[in-house]
Design a protein around this nucleic acid. Structure first.
Length: 721
DNA sequence: GAGCACTGC
């Protein structure tokens, strides 16, 4: 039931026993009539179905509405359809729904298209980077939040949308937080314009770009000489967190409603005492479940790959000590850098009589839903990124989870039936946890956020109305960095054209700068490949059991000059391989071929494919900007000089004992073992990443000449010395 | 001698 949430956060009604999931009720392949009937039935059985009228009324009455809905409430699929049926898309307006993840945008759009009985891409569609399934007739559009942010750069009033729904807002990703600030502002401006008297229309007309780029509705109404004002923008913020207060307060006391979810009860068990060694406690718990509990798979949350691999080994060891009859346990792992075919193993049902134990990072908290989980083991830790603006350094540190995160984890045990969650700490410790995870915007490098906001016309980024302000020092550091890159002028405005060009490129500002600057060094082709490869997760894949083979494979691509040229070699080798093999076959066939090539060469095919997509997209931008895609050929000195000119803020000099001193911050760092320069250790280098894990590591490194720095970045290096 | 999770017209 939808209930008003007044002041205090409403506790949701407690979960009660539920009919089994109708999705699973029938495995027979129904004909299309039956299927449609079944879908209609399922829709009707969703908790949200009974409150359709009330919800629509709430949206009519309130410009901003907070919807708190638990897992399984159907809010994401149903509310947009309710609003469409209620006429919120009249005049050709669009209902936009943002998601933090690409897969979610795609799968939900597919589901809603099916429920609506329309072809995907027609009335219901999705749009994510590299994949647009929308058309002129799309009225319900699912998309990633980052994509909507990009859209705002072209259409600052988001004029095609009558309703924007921000889903999963409780996750508080950087994109969500920036979007909330932007939408609040757009909503105010549109409301102001809607209430304006007609003689202020001129002001809007003078914004030529906006009117030209607006969707059909606007141009046609303009031609007819009717209203030239913007309609108000309805905002719906959807969150699974029980506390609607933060969102409600941010939107001026916006009304919050609660929609009941559909989850099975999960028993939460705590330890009596704190566990000094949580890995040991994990191991004991896994075997306790295996030997004492009924059938059902186990999901274990660990902090990273290393931990997962070591727990997996320990389980195997201990399993061998069990009597044969008790060895019916299977372990599988999942973490993001694992190749997808290995990731798929977690979805395979366990063989009859076997219990599957899944060792996962927090990828299994939200991104991946594994069926069959009845038990969750939660040691209570997570590896989190944090950022130190003063040092310009990111670090990955293991910290306790938040209460919200612990709740999310335990929820994974109650998706198909009642479950159990074993928290490996006492209940008193749970009470001491932070309520929610620190929003990402407070712990990351903000250069890109600041650049985007300035491109959106925000003049005072420090004063910007964030839902939670990032540290002032982090914003100042970003402004400083953007100034040093030439994106900002002395009086802190976006420079023309450089700053605007940089903001248009979906790249780290430092990479955008490198790309634009590359034309002066005649190496746009090389830098284009480099920034695409630097923008993805690690390209090389070296499983522990085949480390030697992987190393040999990598040698074929290695350049003595460093990682950047090595990455170019990989990209070009893949390209040449495809050129030779394809002769105009389908994209699927190419993908398959590439995958095979990647496997043989110990390359992560997901990363390489991603890099190729980025390359294609950025190439389009580069052509649009009118840069000539020239190559420096064999003259890699040109290319390295270009890197020096672009990444001068990340230069380092060799110190005794193989260490390096980063020139900008003075920190002592070391070359990451994955670098091709790990053994060579040249005198002077530039790097792209500085991350603290067990040590302070720099990654993606190229050898340069120290004199290039004073020659190519005198504004910085004469100041320094 | 080593890699939490996402995302970008």
């Amino acid at each position: 039931m939808a209930q008003g949430v007044e002041g205090d956060a409403a506790r949701p009604p407690r979960l009660n026993g539920l009919p089994s999931n109708p999705n699973l009720a029938n495995n027979a392949k129904p004909n299309s009539f039956n299927r449609r009937q079944k879908i209609a039935q399922q829709r009707k059985s969703l908790p949200i179905a009974s409150v359709e009228k009330r919800l629509v009324q709430e949206v009519r009455n309130n410009d901003t509405l907070i919807v708190v809905g638990e897992t399984g409430s159907g809010k994401t699929t149903q509310i947009p359809q309710f609003l469409f049926n209620a006429g919120f898309c009249s005049d050709g307006k669009v209902i936009g729904v943002t998601q933090p993840r690409r897969v979610a945008a795609v799968t939900v759009a597919k589901r809603v298209a099916e429920e609506s009985g329309v072809e995907l891409g027609q009335r219901v569609g999705y749009s994510i980077r590299f994949d647009d399934m929308t058309s002129g007739s799309t009225r319900i559009k699912y998309m990633t939040d980052g994509l909507l942010l990009r859209e705002a750069l072209l259409d600052p009033y988001l004029s095609r949308y009558s309703v924007l729904i921000v889903d999963e807002a409780h996750e508080r990703t950087v994109h969500t937080d920036v979007l909330l600030g932007l939408l609040k502002d757009v909503q105010n401006k549109r409301s102001a314009s809607a209430n304006d008297c007609p003689n202020t229309e001129k002001k809007q007309l003078s914004n030529g770009m906006l009117l030209e780029k607006g969707q059909g509705v606007w141009s046609s109404t303009l031609k007819q000489g009717q209203s030239r004002r913007f309609s108000t923008l309805k905002l719906i913020i959807m969150s699974a967190s029980l506390d609607a207060r933060v969102f409600s307060e941010y939107f001026g006391g916006a009304r919050a409603v609660h929609v009941q979810g559909r989850q099975f009860p999960v028993d939460i068990l705590y330890t009596l005492h704190p566990q000094p060694d949580y890995l040991d406690a994990t191991l004991i718990t896994i075997f306790q479940i295996h030997l004492e509990e009924g059938p059902g798979d186990v999901l274990v949350f660990l902090t990273g790959q290393e931990e997962i691999e070591s727990v997996e080994r320990l389980i195997q060891e201990r399993l061998r000590q069990l009597p044969e009859g008790n060895r019916n346990m299977l372990t599988v792992s999942i973490f993001s850098s694992l190749p997808s075919e290995k990731q798929m193993r977690v979805f395979a049902p366990s063989p009859p009589g076997f219990r599957k134990v899944i060792l996962a990072t927090n990828i299994a908290e939200t991104s991946v839903t594994i069926p069959g989980i009845k038990y969750v083991v939660d040691p209570g830790f997570v590896k989190a990124r944090s950022y130190d603006p003063a040092k310009g350094m990111e670090s990955l540190i293991v910290i306790p989870t938040s209460k919200a995160q612990a709740l999310q984890r335990s929820g994974r045990a109650g998706r198909e039936g009642p479950g159990k969650c074993f928290r490996l700490y006492p209940e008193t410790e749970f009470e001491k946890l932070e309520d929610s995870t620190k929003p990402e915007i407070k712990r990351c490098n903000l250069s890109n956020v600041v650049l985007q906001l300035m491109a959106l016309g925000v003049k005072d980024v420090i004063g910007f109305d964030f839902i939670e302000k990032p540290p002032r020092a982090a914003i100042v550091k970003s402004l400083e960095q953007l100034f040093l890159l030439g994106a900002l002028t002395e009086d802190c405005k976006l420079s023309d054209p450089l700053g605007h060009q940089m903001a248009r490129l979906p790249l780290d500002p430092m990479y955008s700068k490198a790309l634009i600057q590359a034309s002066q060094f005649n190496c746009v082709e090389e830098v284009l490949i480099t920034v695409a490869m630097l923008s993805v997760e690690s390209i090389f894949y070296a499983p522990r059991e085949k480390l030697e083979e992987a190393r040999t494979a990598m040698k074929c691509f290695s350049s003595a000059d460093g990682d950047h040229i090595t990455l170019i070699n990989v990209f070009r080798a893949a390209d040449e391989f495809l050129e030779k093999r394809k002769s105009g076959q389908s994209k699927e066939k190419d993908d398959k071929l590439l995958k095979k090539w990647c496997k043989e060469n110990f390359i992560n095919s997901r990363s390489l494919r991603h890099a190729r997509d980025i390359h294609r997209q950025i190439q389009g931008h580069v052509e649009q900007m009118g840069l000539r895609i020239a190559s420096c050929g064999d003259d890699m000195v040109q290319f390295r000089r270009c890197l020096a000119a672009s990444f001068f803020l990340n230069a380092a000099l060799k110190q005794p004992e193989g260490l390096y001193r980063a020139l900008a911050s003075g920190q002592v760092v070391q070359i990451h073992p994955s670098s091709v320069l790990f053994r060579t250790k040249p005198e002077c280098i530039i790097f792209n990443e500085l991350v603290q894990t067990n040590h302070k590591y720099i990654r993606n490194i190229t050898r340069i000449d120290y004199l290039w720095l004073t020659e190519l970045a005198p504004q910085y290096y004469s100041m320094q010395r």
